[in-house]
C-alpha cells in the first residue's frame, strides 16, 4: 500500500506519481494516510503537482480539497521547465535555489522542529530530540545532537555540516545512518555526505 504514491522533489514543490493499476480509492487512502501521519515531505505551503490530464477534473478537485485541508497547494499543471526534478535542473538554477537559505539564530531544543524547502543554517545547537529537515544542505554552527535530514526531496548531493557532529540519526536523501552508541565529542567540524551509496563523515575546515 505504501508504494501506491511516489513522491519526488521538484524545484518548486513535490511531484506525485502513482503505481501502475492503483485505483483512485487506493491513491486517496495512501495520500490521506501520509498526510495524517505527518509525512515529512508534506510541509505547509508546499505545492503538490500531478501530471496534466492524469486524473479527471472531478478527481483533481477531490485531491485539491484534501491538500488544502492540510495547508498545501495542488496543481495538475506539471509542464513548466522550472518544475523538472532537482537532478535535471541546470547547475546555475540549483545554486539560486540553495541560496534561499533559512537562517536560524537560536538553539533548536528537544521537541522542536525546523523544516525548510531549501538549505538551513543554524547558529546554535541542535539538541537531542530536535529535528531538522531540509530540502538542501544543513549547516550547524554548534553541536548537533538531534536528528537531521538533508536533501529531503531526494537530493543525494546534499550534506550536513556541524562544528561538532554527533547526531542521533542522520539522513541524506533516502539513506539513513544512526550514530554509534559510544560517540565521543569531536573537536573539529565534520561533514556528512553520500559516497558510494553510504553516508560518510569527513573533517572539514571552515
Amino acid at each position: 500500500m505504501s508504494e501506491v504514491v511516489k513522491i519526488k522533489g521538484l524545484k518548486t514543490g513535490l511531484q506525485l506519481s502513482f503505481a501502475k493499476g492503483a485505483s483512485f480509492e487506493d491513491i486517496q487512502a495512501d495520500l490521506q494516510n501520509k498526510l495524517e501521519s505527518g509525512d515529512k515531505f508534506f510541509i505547509r505551503g508546499t505545492t503538490v503537482f500531478v501530471q496534466k490530464g492524469y486524473f479527471s477534473e472531478e478527481r483533481n478537485e477531490k485531491l485539491r480539497r484534501m491538500f488544502h485541508r492540510h495547508g498545501m497547494l495542488f496543481s495538475d499543471e506539471l509542464k513548466n521547465p522550472a518544475m523538472l526534478p532537482i537532478s535535471k535542473i541546470p547547475k546555475r538554477e540549483t545554486q539560486s535555489q540553495t541560496q534561499k537559505t533559512l537562517i536560524v539564530n537560536k538553539t533548536v531544543r528537544g521537541g522542536q522542529e525546523i523544516r525548510a524547502e531549501g538549505s538551513v543554517m543554524i547558529f546554535g545547537n541542535v539538541n537531542p530530540g530536535a529535528q531538522v529537515i531540509a530540502g538542501g544542505n544543513i549547516d550547524i554552527r554548534g553541536t548537533c545532537r538531534g536528528s537531521v535530514h538533508a536533501g529531503a526531496f531526494g537530493d543525494t548531493t546534499a550534506c550536513v555540516v556541524a562544528d561538532r557532529l554527533m547526531p542521533m540519526q542522520i539522513q541524506i536523501a533516502d539513506i539513513l545512518a544512526r550514530s554509534p552508541d559510544d560517540l565521543e565529542m569531536p573537536d573539529h567540524a565534520e561533514k556528512a555526505s553520500i559516497k558510494d551509496g553510504r553516508i560518510v563523515i569527513d573533517a572539514v575546515s571552515r
Binding site: K106, R109, G110, G111, Q112, N127, P128, G129
Partner: peptide
C-alpha cells in the same frame, strides 16, 4: 536536562 531543554523551548 532533556526536560529542561524542552521547557526552555516552550518558554521561547
Amino acid at each position: 536536562v532533556r526536560d529542561a531543554d524542552k521547557i526552555i523551548g516552550e518558554l521561547g
